[in-house]
Amino acid sequence: MGMETCTLDLYTHYLLSSTGPTTATGLSRLLDGTLSHDHIPRWLSSAAWGSADIWRQAKPLIRQAEAQRLAEEFAVLIVDDFILEKAHTDANEVIGTHWDHGQ
């Protein structure tokens, strides 16, 4: 029996437990293909989650990790939403070069 949909809980746990790059293909592979790698970006784009939603999911785990660290230890959680260019993907109205003018 295959999994029909991704959930915020599953996706958040995948992001938090990963020690390297995270991808839809990586999550699908981790679940032995029970969740299609194509389903994950469609699921993500179908919801209107913001940073507050993600923080609500991540906060308990982050606070638990903080409590286990010495006060002088330093840790950083970095979230990046950049898009990797793929050689086999042609530019279109959605996929193309986007410049970050904030930097």
Rank of each mutant, 00 (worst) to 15 (best):
L30V: 03
L30K: 15
L31V: 03
L31G: 05
L31Y: 05
D32N: 13
D32Y: 02
D32H: 11
G33H: 07
G33Q: 04
G33M: 04
T34G: 00
L35M: 03
L35E: 05
L35Y: 05
L35T: 02
S36A: 12
S36T: 04
S36L: 03
S36Q: 07
H37K: 14
H37F: 13
H37I: 00
D38P: 00
D38W: 04
D38Q: 14
D38Y: 06
D38N: 14
H39W: 01
H39Y: 05
I40C: 04
I40P: 05
P41Y: 09
R42G: 01
R42C: 05
W43K: 09
W43C: 05
W43E: 06
L44K: 14
L44W: 02
L44P: 00
S45A: 15
S45K: 15
S46T: 02
S46Q: 10
S46F: 00
S46C: 02
S46Y: 00
S46L: 02
S46R: 10
S46D: 12
S46M: 02
S46P: 00
A47F: 05
A47V: 12
A48H: 12
A48P: 00
W49I: 11
W49R: 12
W49K: 09
G50T: 09
G50E: 10
G50P: 01
G50M: 02
G50I: 02
G50C: 06
G50R: 12
G50H: 08
G50Y: 03
S51K: 10
S51T: 12
S51G: 07
A52H: 08
A52F: 03
A52E: 14
A52R: 11
A52T: 11
D53I: 02
D53C: 03
D53P: 04
I54Q: 06
W55H: 12
W55D: 09
W55N: 08
W55V: 14
R56I: 02
R56C: 08
R56F: 03
Q57T: 03
Q57Y: 04
Q57R: 14
Q57N: 07
Q57P: 00
A58V: 14
A58K: 01
A58M: 15
A58F: 15
K59T: 07
K59M: 08
K59N: 07
P60E: 04
P60A: 08
P60V: 09
P60W: 01
L61H: 13
L61Y: 13
L61K: 02
I62R: 00
R63Q: 15
R63L: 15
R63D: 15
Q64S: 12
Q64C: 07
A65K: 01
A65N: 01
A65G: 02
A65C: 01
E66W: 07
E66Y: 06
A67M: 08
A67Y: 01
A67E: 06
A67P: 00
A67G: 08
Q68W: 00
Q68K: 12
Q68H: 08
R69N: 05
R69W: 04
L70M: 06
A71V: 12
A71K: 08
A71T: 11
A71I: 11
A71P: 07
A71G: 02
E72Y: 11
E72V: 10
E72K: 10
E73D: 15
F74Y: 09
F74W: 09
F74N: 11
F74T: 14
A75M: 08
A75T: 10
A75W: 13
V76K: 09
V76C: 12
V76S: 08
V76W: 04
L77C: 07
L77P: 07
L77F: 10
L77I: 14
L77D: 06
I78N: 09
I78H: 10
I78K: 09
I78S: 13
